[in-house]
Amino acid sequence: MENLSALSIEAARTLIAELMGPDRVPEKMKVITDTSDFFRIEYNDVVVLGETPYWIKGYEKEGRFGLDDEPKYWVRRAIDLTNGATKVIKLVFHEEFETRVGNSVIKCFRSPKKEARILDLVAKQINFMHGHWVLDLAGNNVRILEFIHGRRYDDIVAEYGTGHHDYFHNYFPVVLDQYIVLVKAIKFLHDNGEKHGDIRRDHIIYDRELNTNRWIDFDYNYMHIESMFGFDLHGLGNILIFLAGRGDILVPDLYNNQREVFEKLWGEDLNISYKNRVANLRKVYPYIPASLNLILLHFSLGANIFYDATDQMLDDLAKAREDVLKLTGR
């Protein structure tokens, strides 16, 4: 095979012309083999990774810290110039920061090595994003991800039903099954000694081609204290509260719109991490089975026992599933 690391600009232009048509060939472009400075990589450049040239397009965005659509300059959409497939290329970005909960400080890292390792681990697991990794000429671990055609799962769920009663009786049984599949996927990671590291509801994409949910973005790691998987379990709990409530049930909304429900709430009913959200949803929607609500209460301020492992949560979810099916007759 031709040594593509020495690909000339003219050769790259030819590849683009052959694959995409001559009118798509850019006038200005670079060929890059060292991705260390990802800000140098611009729209229309060709990045050569291993033996494959990728034609760089826009960068990905992510809503975070209350900001919508924050650009992730190290994550680029690209076209594989050997076959025209769309890929997502994650370049090396060594982010390190500390987060504080109470008096405990936890060190968080963005780790390309971790994500690469998990990509290898989940290559045959459908409920994760797939891809492979390559070291560029400077030794940077670049991850090349298959593009997932689909939307955020939480956005899809929030549109189900005409109201919560309709949603819970007609849609939630399926949603709960889908959620259990997602928890089992995380159990697979944990059983293999890996954390997801950043379990949030916008990190689940419903793949409309495979008709299943897929976890994305597992490059975060943190120096855990006693509980290696506590942070992941915390994320899973918050997602279940969201799914069972068909959105976050916010205390100010109850105060303004359902005062009689607000009056029944105690501090212990609130989410342990987000004190403006209700975890004890049975007080808002009394038809929620007690067994399901009990799982939600593990993530409330009033909880005195916590889940240590996904197995414990899955046991409780099996019981809750039975009760949800009985209630809805599905």
Binding site: V101, G102, N103, S104, I106, H224, I225, E226, S227, G230, F231, H234, I272, S273, F299, L301, A303, F306, D308
Partner: peptide, 9 residues
């Protein structure tokens, strides 16, 4: 705290 025990163990 309660919250710390929940997340960190």
């Amino acid at each position: 705290s309660h919250n710390e025990e929940f997340i960190f163990g």
